[in-house]
Design a protein around this nucleic acid. Structure first.
Lengths: 332, 332
DNA sequence: TTGTAGGCGTTATCAA
DNA sequence: TTGATAACGCCTACAA
């Protein structure tokens, strides 16, 4: 803060009025070339930077956006956050970050705290109730990631295609009994993924997919689930996401159960850490970078209704085969 | 934005003036209890939220802070970011996030972009030149993480103690030839860590610590380094950080070199992913959560000079022994 | 205890 | 093309 320099300082230095400085620098209105040069030079010398808050007060546009995520330490959200902020920067926006720590009340509070100082909000995998989303949607422009709501713009990965690729891969290897290790009941993605399984599994010959409980969407959740998976008699586990997959992997290793010889394990998303372990985790890649970028693009379109809307980006998912899956062992 | 409700709307609804509304809600000045209740009720009904940008314009305080990090996808920075935003929320601040993507120019640009809309800035492991830090420091309140500069508040983990714990552990196991796998030359932490090694290693009997090149501070860097480490003849590798350690681990596994039987590997920091692999990575834990929290506390102290300063938190590091280290094998 | 007036830094409107 | 003036939403003297 200190006593930062304002338009008036620049105006005095350049020997013009404050309004002329504003015009010269924002470049909207015509200014005499010579005057503008003088103003620009003065601004440069003084190191003038406009106060965006003040500008926003009158233009009604802050050039800030907000991003709300459930957990920044989850590499899934870290990747999305990184791409959101990168794209926002390129589009001339600064971004407020808000980590709800998976808590619904915090999530809502953060949204309210931010809504007044941003032009728009991106809600990533929001856990909040639909009614709250609807209420908030009236306050500010909004884009949803991994959730849909009538009238709101959404960016979602194709869960059905993810499931199809995963089942296809395991079925092709010869697996006929697969355990799906579920994520949080309230997670929209988890619901979609299980629904897709129920719809798609019957399209494969002789394939049985059982659902194993509901677990926290992280490493610990996977560790908890592993023993139940083993007991289920399935020859392959499909985890709700990579972190759960890694948890399963770790627990199986501890028990001396070999992967993939004794049991195949698949994750979903291909977050960065999936390559860190050995055996590497077979997974279906979600285009997280594109998700973040696309969400920003959509939001920018929403906030600037005049501009030509950019074509919606498609978000291809892709099977990534590593060492954690193989043909099932014959019964010994 | 839409046409959001202002103090005037509340004033009209409550049958008072705008200034009374301001007073009633901010609670600084005395207001008749009955009037205040009426105002508060009216505000609640209308869902009034003050425009913080407008408030900041006059109070000179935005209640926003900014955080600049080199890479959000690095779990080290993700953890710090999470704790920064968590503590900031508790202290009543919203946080701008800025990912420089390890680029010096971007880093500087982000700092400038943010400096006018925040009360203070936290620079985490800044890569920028010292002269730039000095220049920026004049613009806004600032706290540095993992870097020191005269006159500026810093939060740093005790690199010397980290090194001491690591060497003590490996030496106690019987290792006499250790390879330190260096991080980026320009990294302040890397410089401090190597300097600490040169100072501390001689205090152990018969201990030789060699430096193995300079590598990217991530998984790929570790993979690149692994073969050189093996060739060095060292019985243990101490990596610049956990990600490098994991890279080494992975490459060794690929080559069929057993850890810890053939070679012990240590990381530094104990980022979340260190527990994901097996064998688990022995490491020295940096209190990342405390680092973020402490940085916010220091910044808040700086921004509110009147308040009683909170006592500086100490940041204990701690050895975490997992399975990637053991006594060196006898020569076979 | 409350209302009126002024101003924070900027841009938009209107004359000149 | 430029300069005064008003206004954005809010807060804080000052006056009532």
């Amino acid at each position: 803060m200190a006593t930062s320099i304002t338009v008036h300082d620049v105006a005095k230095a350049a020997g013009v009025s404050a309004s002329t400085v504003s015009r010269a620098l924002s470049g909207n209105t015509a200014v005499a070339a010579e005057t503008r040069d003088r103003v620009v030079e003065a601004a440069r010398q003084l190191g003038y930077r406009p106060n965006l808050a003040a500008r926003g007060l009158i233009t009604g546009t802050t050039h800030n956006i907000g991003l709300v995520v459930p957990d920044l330490e989850n590499p899934y959200f870290a990747s999305i956050t990184k791409s959101v902020q990168s794209r926002a920067l390129a589009a001339g926006y600064s971004v407020f970050i808000a980590d709800s720590d998976e808590d619904i009340r915090t999530e809502l509070e953060l949204v309210h705290q931010l809504s007044k100082q941003v032009d728009g909000l991106i809600l990533c995998s929001p856990r909040m109730a639909a009614s709250d989303i609807a209420a908030v949607a009236g306050q500010t422009m909004m884009v949803l990631i991994n959730r849909e709501w009538e009238g709101l713009t959404s960016v979602v990965v194709d869960d059905a295609e993810i499931i199809r690729l995963a089942l296809e891969h395991l079925h092709a290897l010869g697996h006929r009994h697969i355990a799906y290790v579920g994520g949080p009941e309230k997670s929209w993605s988890n619901q979609k993924r299980w629904a897709a399984i129920e719809r798609i599994a019957p399209t494969f010959d002789d394939l049985e997919v059982g659902k194993v409980g509901s677990y926290a969407p992280n490493f610990d959740g996977g560790q908890s689930a592993a023993d139940v998976v083993v007991a289920s008699g399935a020859t392959a586990a499909l985890a709700y996401n990579d972190l759960v997959g890694l948890g399963i992997l770790a627990r199986l290793t501890t028990r001396g159960i070999r992967v993939p010889e004794d049991l195949s394990v698949m994750g979903i998303d291909d977050v960065n850490v999936a390559t860190l372990v050995s055996p590497g985790l077979t997974t279906v890649r979600s285009p997280l970078k594109k998700v973040g970028r696309s969400a920003v693009n959509s939001l920018v379109d929403l906030m600037n209704p005049t501009d030509r809307h950019s074509a919606p980006e498609d978000l291809p998912v892709q099977l990534v085969v590593r060492q954690s899956t193989s043909v099932p062992q014959q019964h010994s």
